[in-house]
Design a binder for these strands. Structure first.
Length: 895
RNA sequence: GGGCGGUUAGCUCAGCGGGAGAGCGCUUGCCUUACAAGCAAGAUGUCACAGGUUCAAAUCCUGUACCGCCCACCA
C-alpha cells in the first residue's frame, strides 16, 4: 500500500463499479421497508457549487445509511428545466450571434434550448458522481419529461375546474428586462439611496393655488388620475372635491379623500397612479378612478403620454420630467432619502407594478391543510423553529401568479375561442371538443402563449417523478417520501408548495421530515459569490483532497440551525483524518501476511484492552446511529473521528503492538481478529460519510479473507451493500473498560512527568507507583506490561506507603501517586510552580464539591445518583489534594 | 414595524439543568519500523450583560446590548 491515500487512484474506478453492479437501485419487488428521498432538482443550467455539495452529501449519507440498515432506499435524481435561467442562457448565446429570440421565432428558439440542454445542460449530473452521490440513476427525471408535463396539465385543469386557478387582471410585478410577470417571491427588496421630489399641482380654478405631492417616482405622474388627502386633514379638507390640472399632461384629476393618505408622510397629499402602484390600485378601485397605463412591456413610455416623452426609458423620462417641472417652477423641493426598491431576483432590474392579465393560484385555500399537516406533526421541520417561518408565510399567503411571458416551460393548457371564451383542458383535442359543445359547431382555438412558473412543476416533484398521474408501483411504494433535505431559502418557493400540492393530489404529505441545512459561507462568514471571488469550488476541493475529505468536512460542519463557515484549512484537517484511516489499515495489512481467518477465538481470550476498545466501539455505534437518525450529522462525524483517531489508533493499536510481534500465535491470532473486526466495523460506520476510502480499504482487506455480512446474508462483496453495525449490549464490558480508563490515566501521568523534565523518549527511566489501596494495586499489577509499553518504561516499582522516593517529581491521579525519581538537580522553583498550579485546580473543584455536600437542600433534593457521584468525586479530590500537598512540602524540604 | 437565529478558548463551533469540551491554531519535546497529512505532553475561558426560578444555571424564564437572517411597509 502507498504511504498516503491517493483518492485519484480510487474514486473513479469505484464509482464505475457501483454503477456497473447496480448498487444504487431500489426495487418495488423488494419487501424491504422503503426509505425515499427525492433530490431537490438542480437547474439544468447549474454546475455543482458548494451548497449543492452539502445538500447532496447529506442525502447520500442518509441513503447509504438506510440502505445498510436494510431499507429499500430510493433516491430519485433529476433536474429542473429552470424557465427563466435557461432561457437567459440561450438568449445570451444568441446575442453573441447578433440575434434575439424574437428574430428566430418561438419554434426555432425552443429547438435551440433543447439542443443546448442536450449539449451542455446537466453537467451537474456528472459532477454529482464525482461527489460519490449514488442516487437511482434508472429513475432520473426532468421537469419537462412527457410524464411530468402530463402531471402539470392534469393539476392545472383540476385546480381550474375547482376555481383554485383563475385568470385575473390586476397589477403584477413586472420585470421589464425579462418582459414577464414574476411572483412576489421573485422580488427582492433592496435598500437604495434615492430622492423624494415634491411636485406642485395647480388647483383648477384656484387662484394660483397649489397642492404639493411627494414622490420617489416622478415619471409616474403621467399616469396620475387623482390626488388623495386624508378626510380629517385640516390642511386639505377644503380642497376635497376640487380638481387639479396635472402639469405636463393637462389632465384634470380630482382631489379625493381616502384614509390611505397619511398626513404624517410627505406633504400629506399623495398622487394616485392606479396602474403603477399597488396601494394606488386599491385606492383607484375604491374611487372608480381610471387606470392609465403609461409603460410598454420594457417600461418605456407608451402612446398614452404626451408626445415629448413617448418612447423614453423610465429613468430617462424621470430626469426629463423633473427638469420640465423645475422649469415650470413646479418643483417645490428635492430631498435625499433612502428607501427600498423592488428588484427582479434574476434580472436585477427595478420591478414595475404593471396592469396585465395573468393566471393565479388561490394559495390561501390550499394553505389551510398545508398548515395543519405541520401543526399536527404529519410533517416535522428539523430544526423545528423553521415551522414558524413556514406558518407565518402560509397564513398570510397571497395569490400566486403562475403565468410567465416566456417561451421555455410548460405552456399553459388554456385555449381561447373567437370571442375570447377560455377552454382549459389537458389537450388541444379536449379543448376543441369542449369548444364544439359550447359553440354548437367546430371553431378554431388559439392557445394561451404563456408558460407556467417553474415552481409550479417542481411543486409536483415528489409524486410526478414516481409516475403520477399513473398509479405506478413506485408511487404506491415510495410516496410519501421520507425526508426532504434542502436550504431555508426555498421553504416558500418550493417546500410549502410541494406540501400544498402533495396533500391536494395525493391526499397525503409529500414527506415526513424536512431537514433544513444552513448556507455555506466563507471563513469570514461572508456569502460566497463569484464576484467577491471567495467561492470554494467543490470540484477543485475533490481534485485536491478527494471527495471523502470534502464530504466528511461538510458532514462535520452540518450542525443544526447555523450557517456553515468553511475554509480550506478545515477541509485539509479532515483530509488528514481520511489519510489516518488509510495508514491504520496499512498497518494492519502489513501484519496480515499468512494469517488464517478460519481460526476462531473465544471471549475469554480477550484482554482488558480488547474489551475496552470493543466497548468503546459499541458506544460509538450507538452514538453514530442515534445521530444519523436525528439528523445530527456533526455528532456522527465527530464520534467516528474521535473513535478512529484517538481510541483506535492512538491507544488501541499502540497497546497491542507487542502482542502482534509476540511469538504466541494464539494471542497474535486473537489480536489480529480484534484489530480487523474493529477496523472493518469503523469503516462501515464511516461509509455513508466517506464512501470511497471505506470501500477501497474493504476491498483490500477482502483479499486477505476479511468479510462483512451484507443486508441479504453473509459475505458482502461491497461495503455499500454491507449491513450497518448494530449496538450490542453483550459487547459492553464495564469492568475491563473502567480498568483501562484508569490505566490510561496512569500512563498519561507518567508521560507528563517525563515531558516535564524532558527525558528523551528513548531514554529509560524508573518510575514508582504508590497505590491508595489493594484494588488499585491489583489494577496496576495486572496491567504492568501495558503500562510499561505505553509509557515506554523498562520497569516500574509498586511501592508501599512509607516508601516514597525522596528525590522525585510527582503527580497524583485518583487512587495513585506517581513518582519519577531524579538523579540530578530538580528545578525546584519551576516544579513548585507546576505543583502549585495543580493544587490550585484541584482546590477549586474540591471547594465546589464541598459546598454542594454541605448544602442540606442538595442532600435532600438531588437524585441519589448525583449525590453519590459528588461524594465519590469529593473523596478522589481530597486524596489528590492531600497527596499533592505532601509532595509540595517535600519539595520545599529539598530546597 | 413583525418574527427567527446567534453571542462559550486566539479562530471555527459542540454542549442546552448536576464535573467548562472538540477541531484548528499556539508552546515544548520527538523523523519511536502505519502515518511529520504524524506522535507525546502542555497552556488558554467573568460560557455577552442584568435580574429571576432552582438544592444546583453556560443550559430554564424575563429584560438589555450587539451581530446575522426572514417577512412587511415606506409619498
Amino acid at each position: 500500500m502507498d504511504k498516503a491515500y491517493d483518492p485519484k487512484k480510487v474514486e473513479e474506478r469505484l464509482y464505475a463499479e457501483w454503477l456497473d453492479k447496480g448498487y444504487y437501485r431500489a426495487s418495488t419487488q423488494s419487501d424491504k421497508v422503503p426509505f425515499t428521498i427525492v433530490i431537490p432538482p438542480p437547474n439544468v443550467t447549474g454546475s455543482l457549487h458548494i451548497g449543492h455539495a452539502l445538500d447532496y452529501t447529506i442525502q447520500d449519507i442518509l441513503i447509504r445509511y438506510k440502505r445498510m440498515k436494510g431499507f429499500d432506499a430510493l433516491w430519485v435524481p433529476g433536474m429542473d428545466h429552470a424557465g427563466i435561467a435557461t432561457q437567459m442562457v440561450v438568449e445570451r448565446e444568441l446575442e453573441k450571434e447578433g440575434l434575439s429570440r424574437i428574430d428566430i421565432g418561438k419554434e426555432a428558439f425552443l429547438d435551440r434550448v433543447w439542443k443546448w440542454k442536450e449539449d451542455s445542460g446537466g453537467v451537474i449530473v456528472e459532477q454529482l458522481k464525482r461527489l460519490g452521490a449514488l442516487p437511482d440513476w434508472d429513475k432520473e427525471r426532468f421537469t419537462l419529461d412527457e410524464n411530468l408535463s402530463r402531471a402539470v396539465r392534469k393539476v392545472f385543469v383540476y385546480l381550474y375546474d375547482q376555481g383554485l386557478i383563475y385568470k385575473d387582471k390586476k397589477l403584477v410585478n413586472w420585470d421589464p428586462k425579462l418582459r414577464t410577470a414574476i411572483s412576489d417571491l421573485e422580488v427582492e427588496q433592496k435598500d437604495v439611496e434615492g430622492s423624494l421630489w415634491h411636485l406642485m399641482y395647480p388647483i383648477k380654478d384656484g387662484d394660483s393655488e397649489f397642492i404639493t405631492v411627494a414622490t420617489t417616482r416622478p415619471e409616474t405622474m403621467l399616469g396620475d388620475t387623482a390626488v388623495a388627502v386624508h378626510p380629517e386633514d385640516e390642511r386639505y379638507k377644503r380642497l376635497i372635491g376640487k380638481s387639479v390640472v396635472l402639469p405636463l399632461v393637462g389632465r384634470v384629476i380630482p382631489i379625493i379623500a381616502d384614509e390611505y393618505s397619511d398626513p404624517e408622510k410627505g406633504s400629506g397629499a399623495v398622487k394616485i397612479t392606479p396602474a403603477h402602484d399597488f396601494n394606488d390600485f386599491e385606492v383607484g378601485k375604491r374611487h372608480n378612478l381610471s387606470m392609465i397605463n403609461i409603460f410598454d412591456e420594457t417600461a418605456r413610455m407608451n402612446e398614452d403620454v404626451p408626445t415629448a416623452y413617448r418612447g423614453m426609458d423610465r429613468f430617462q423620462a424621470r430626469k426629463r420630467i423633473v427638469d420640465d417641472m423645475q422649469s415650470l417652477g413646479l418643483l417645490a423641493k428635492v430631498e435625499k432619502t433612502s428607501h427600498t426598491l423592488p428588484y427582479g431576483d434574476r434580472s436585477d432590474v427595478v420591478i414595475e407594478p404593471w396592469l396585465t392579465d395573468q393566471w393565479y393560484v388561490d394559495a390561501k385555500k390550499l394553505a389551510a391543510r398545508a398548515i395543519s399537516a405541520v401543526e399536527d406533526g404529519d410533517i416535522s421541520f428539523v430544526p423545528r423553529y423553521w415551522e414558524n417561518t413556514y406558518f407565518e408565510w402560509l397564513r398570510n399567503v397571497e395569490p400566486w401568479c403562475i403565468s410567465r411571458q416566456l417561451w421555455w416551460g410548460h405552456q399553459i393548457p388554456a385555449w381561447y375561442g373567437p370571442d375570447g371564451q377560455v377552454f382549459v383542458a389537458k389537450s388541444e383535442e379536449e379543448a376543441l371538443e369542449t369548444a364544439k359543445d359550447h359553440y354548437g359547431n367546430e371553431v378554431e382555438l388559439i392557445r394561451d402563449l404563456d408558460v407556467l412558473d417553474t415552481w409550479f412543476s417542481s411543486a409536483l416533484w415528489p409524486f410526478s417523478t414516481l409516475g403520477w398521474p399513473k398509479l405506478t408501483p413506485e408511487l404506491k411504494k415510495y410516496y410519501p417520501t421520507s425526508v426532504l433535505v434542502t436550504g431555508f431559502d426555498i421553504i416558500f418557493f418550493w417546500v410549502a408548495r410541494m406540501i400544498m400540492q402533495g396533500i391536494k393530489f395525493m391526499g397525503d404529505v409529500p414527506f415526513k421530515d424536512v431537514y433544513i441545512h444552513g448556507l455555506i459561507r466563507d471563513e469570514k462568514g461572508k456569502k460566497m459569490s463569484k464576484t467577491t471571488g471567495n467561492v470554494i469550488d467543490p470540484l477543485s476541493v475533490i481534485e485536491e483532497n478527494g471527495a471523502d475529505a470534502l464530504r466528511f468536512s461538510l458532514c462535520a460542519l452540518a450542525t443544526q440551525g447555523r450557517d456553515i463557515k468553511l475554509s480550506m484549512s478545515t477541509i485539509q484537517g479532515y483530509r488528514n483524518f481520511i489519510n489516518k484511516i488509510w495508514n491504520a489499515s496499512r498497518f494492519l495489512v502489513m501484519n496480515l501476511e499468512g494469517y488464517d481467518f478460519s481460526l476462531p477465538f473465544a471471549e475469554e481470550d480477550l484482554s482488558n484492552y480488547d474489551k475496552w476498545i470493543i466497548t468503546k466501539l459499541n458506544y460509538t455505534i450507538k452514538e453514530v446511529q442515534d445521530s444519523l437518525d436525528y439528523y445530527q450529522f456533526d455528532k456522527a462525524a465527530s464520534a467516528i473521528y474521535q473513535f478512529i483517531w484517538v481510541d483506535y489508533c492512538n491507544w488501541y493499536i499502540e497497546a497491542v503492538k507487542p502482542e502482534l510481534y509476540s511469538g504466541d500465535e494464539r494471542v497474535k491470532q486473537k489480536t489480529r481478529d480484534v484489530l480487523i473486526k474493529v477496523l472493518t466495523t469503523s469503516l462501515q460506520l464511516l461509509h455513508p460519510i466517506a464512501p470511497f476510502i471505506t470501500e477501497e480499504l474493504y476491498q483490500r482487506l477482502r483479499e486477505f479473507g476479511v468479510t462483512l455480512n451484507s443486508v441479504e446474508g453473509s459475505d458482502s462483496e461491497s461495503i455499500v451493500k454491507s449491513s450497518f453495525p448494530e449496538f450490542n449490549r453483550d459487547h459492553i464490558f464495564e469492568h475491563g473498560y473502567r480498568e483501562i480508563e484508569f490505566v490510561k490515566g496512569v500512563v498519561v501521568g507518567i508521560r507528563n512527568l517525563r515531558a516535564t523534565i524532558r527525558v528523551h523518549p528513548s531514554e529509560q527511566v524508573r518510575v514508582v507507583l504508590l497505590p491508595e489501596n489493594d484494588v488499585i494495586r491489583e489494577y496496576i499489577e495486572s496491567n504492568r506490561e501495558l503500562i510499561l509499553n505505553l509509557a515506554t518504561l523498562s520497569k516500574f516499582d509498586i511501592a508501599n506507603s512509607g516508601e516514597k522516593p525522596t528525590r522525585a517529581i510527582a503527580q497524583v491521579n485518583p487512587g495513585v501517586e506517581i513518582f519519577l525519581p531524579i538523579e540530578g538537580l530538580i528545578d525546584i522553583e519551576k516544579e513548585s510552580e507546576r505543583i502549585r498550579r495543580e493544587i490550585g485546580k484541584i482546590t477549586k473543584e474540591l471547594e465546589r464539591a464541598e459546598r454542594k455536600l454541605a448544602s442540606a437542600g442538595f442532600l435532600s433534593q438531588a437524585p441519589e445518583g448525583v449525590v453519590k457521584k459528588e461524594k465519590g468525586k469529593h473523596e478522589q479530590l481530597s486524596f489528590q489534594k492531600r497527596k499533592m500537598l505532601e509532595v509540595f512540602e517535600k519539595l520545599q524540604e529539598l530546597n
